[in-house]
């Protein structure tokens, strides 16, 4: 049971980083932690007490469930794909705004708006 509650705690830690931090890189890192902890949840679901890794072996009768493993292999790939795209976006944002702090970017956009309205 501890595994489940551990997973919950870690998920929330990651989730908190995503929504509470203003730094875009840190948001992406948080997202990675959030996703990784969901993997823990799934893999815990698949565990059988006394089971072995699901690779056919002489003399082993009880195996852990291979299905969650397969699902999480796919989810890991999705996770790294999201991280790569997110970081590429951060790099472009840095090029365009000179900052990766949400607050600064907001300010620069607002300043631009004010300028635009002033012209009209």
């Amino acid at each position: 049971m501890y595994n489940y509650f551990l997973a919950v705690f870690l998920m929330m830690a990651g989730f908190y980083v995503v929504i509470a931090q203003g730094n875009l890189v840190k948001k992406v890192i948080g997202l990675g932690m959030f996703q990784t902890s969901v993997f823990i949840l799934y893999i815990s679901i698949g565990k059988v007490n006394g089971g072995q890794a699901p690779i056919l072996t002489e003399g082993v009768t009880s195996y852990s469930n291979p299905l969650p493993h397969v699902l999480m292999l796919t989810a890991i790939v999705v996770g790294v794909a999201t991280t790569a795209v997110g970081l590429a976006l951060v790099i472009r944002i840095h090029e365009a705004y000179g900052s990766v702090e949400e607050h600064d970017i907001q300010q620069r956009d607002n300043a631009e708006d004010a300028l635009l309205e002033g012209e009209l």
Partner: peptide, 9 residues
């Protein structure tokens, strides 16, 4: 994950 038998993962 190793501990939980998920070697591939």
């Amino acid at each position: 994950f190793m501990d939980l038998d998920a070697v591939d993962v």
